[in-house]
Amino acid sequence: MTDDAPSATAKHTSPDQDLTMQSVTIGRPADELFAYFRDFSNLSSFMDNVERIDVIDEHRSHWVVKAPAGKTVEWDATVTAEEPGRSISWQSEDGADVPNSGRVTFTDAGARGTVVSATIAYDPPAGIVGKVIAKLFQREPAIQARRDLRRFKQLMETGEIATSSRTQTQLQEERA
């Protein structure tokens, strides 16, 4: 039996799946944020562990994501539901290195902008051991979702992502 409730309230989730929910308020209109997010090729600009996303067609994409110990994981994802300007849901296809599904919603917050909420369900590779390793390497999805939403906020509000470290280019310029 399948449960068509939103993941945050679903009654029939797999006991092997982890669920993470994160939200951030961004000072931009929902339609603008949705449009940027919906172009999946943009996501690697603020999702730190995403190496690349290849858009296959309007509903499918191929993801390559950094994993612990210098490895990568890959999967194809399909958009399962979409309300332009309001929400988008997806599900990884069979054979994914990390089976996952999720939903991102864009809720008008009046003069404050838009509340962007991400709910992600995933099966950690190697079960609990894989989850512990991912947490140690700061690659655990709950940690990443929080950081990625913060970077999305910075990018959408200021046009850039603040960093406390200097880039290779900055170091070379200082030495010259």
Results as ranks from 00 to 15, higher is better:
residue 153 K to W: 08
residue 142 A to V: 01
residue 165 S to P: 01
residue 128 I to A: 14
residue 139 R to S: 13
residue 172 Q to Y: 08
residue 115 V to C: 05
residue 122 Y to R: 02
residue 109 A to G: 03
residue 121 A to C: 05
residue 146 R to Q: 11
residue 118 A to I: 05
residue 106 F to L: 06
residue 151 R to D: 14
residue 111 A to M: 06
residue 152 F to M: 08
residue 169 T to N: 07
residue 164 S to N: 15
residue 159 G to R: 11
residue 105 T to N: 00
residue 134 A to S: 14
residue 108 D to F: 03
residue 168 Q to M: 09
residue 138 Q to D: 15
residue 162 A to I: 07
residue 168 Q to Y: 06
residue 118 A to D: 01
residue 171 L to H: 07
residue 122 Y to P: 00
residue 133 I to P: 07
residue 131 K to L: 15
residue 133 I to K: 10
residue 136 L to I: 14
residue 170 Q to H: 03
residue 108 D to T: 09
residue 163 T to R: 15
residue 149 L to W: 04
residue 119 T to C: 13
residue 151 R to P: 06
residue 148 D to L: 05
residue 113 G to N: 07
residue 158 T to P: 05
residue 152 F to S: 06
residue 110 G to P: 12
residue 173 E to W: 10
residue 150 R to Y: 00
residue 117 S to H: 04
residue 156 M to I: 03
residue 148 D to I: 06
residue 119 T to Y: 09
residue 151 R to T: 05
residue 117 S to Q: 12
residue 112 R to F: 11
residue 136 L to F: 08
residue 125 P to K: 10
residue 123 D to F: 11
residue 145 A to R: 03
residue 161 I to Y: 02
residue 142 A to N: 09
residue 132 V to H: 11
residue 107 T to E: 13
residue 149 L to T: 03
residue 133 I to D: 04
residue 167 T to I: 15
residue 111 A to K: 11
residue 147 R to L: 10
residue 140 E to D: 13
residue 104 V to C: 02
residue 106 F to C: 01
residue 167 T to C: 12
residue 125 P to H: 10
residue 123 D to R: 04
residue 173 E to V: 14
residue 146 R to Y: 03
residue 118 A to M: 11
residue 145 A to Q: 12
residue 123 D to H: 08
residue 111 A to V: 06
residue 108 D to G: 07
residue 159 G to A: 06
residue 123 D to G: 01
residue 133 I to N: 13
residue 170 Q to L: 06
residue 107 T to V: 11
residue 169 T to P: 00
residue 103 R to N: 05
residue 109 A to E: 10
residue 166 R to K: 15
residue 160 E to I: 01
residue 150 R to F: 04
residue 130 G to C: 03
residue 110 G to C: 11
residue 141 P to S: 14
residue 150 R to I: 09
residue 138 Q to H: 13
residue 164 S to K: 15
residue 166 R to W: 04
residue 148 D to P: 00
residue 117 S to W: 06
residue 106 F to E: 07
residue 142 A to L: 04
residue 122 Y to T: 08
residue 139 R to N: 12
residue 140 E to N: 08
residue 125 P to Y: 12
residue 137 F to T: 05
residue 128 I to Y: 07
residue 152 F to E: 00
residue 131 K to Q: 15
residue 139 R to K: 14
residue 165 S to T: 12
residue 108 D to A: 11
residue 127 G to E: 02
residue 111 A to N: 10
residue 105 T to I: 05
residue 112 R to M: 08
residue 126 A to T: 09
residue 169 T to S: 06
residue 172 Q to F: 11
residue 158 T to Y: 11
residue 134 A to N: 08
residue 163 T to M: 07
residue 147 R to P: 02
residue 156 M to F: 03
residue 142 A to D: 08
residue 118 A to P: 00
residue 157 E to N: 04
residue 116 V to S: 02
residue 159 G to T: 05
residue 149 L to V: 02
residue 141 P to H: 13
residue 118 A to K: 02
residue 160 E to L: 07
residue 117 S to C: 05
residue 151 R to W: 03
residue 158 T to D: 15
residue 127 G to M: 03
residue 164 S to C: 05
residue 126 A to H: 12
residue 116 V to M: 00
residue 161 I to K: 01
residue 166 R to T: 13
residue 137 F to C: 06
residue 117 S to G: 02
residue 110 G to R: 09
residue 132 V to T: 14
residue 131 K to H: 14
residue 132 V to A: 15
residue 158 T to S: 14
residue 161 I to Q: 01
residue 116 V to D: 02
residue 124 P to F: 13
residue 161 I to A: 02
residue 118 A to S: 11
residue 136 L to C: 10
residue 155 L to W: 06
residue 122 Y to N: 00
residue 160 E to S: 13
residue 103 R to G: 00
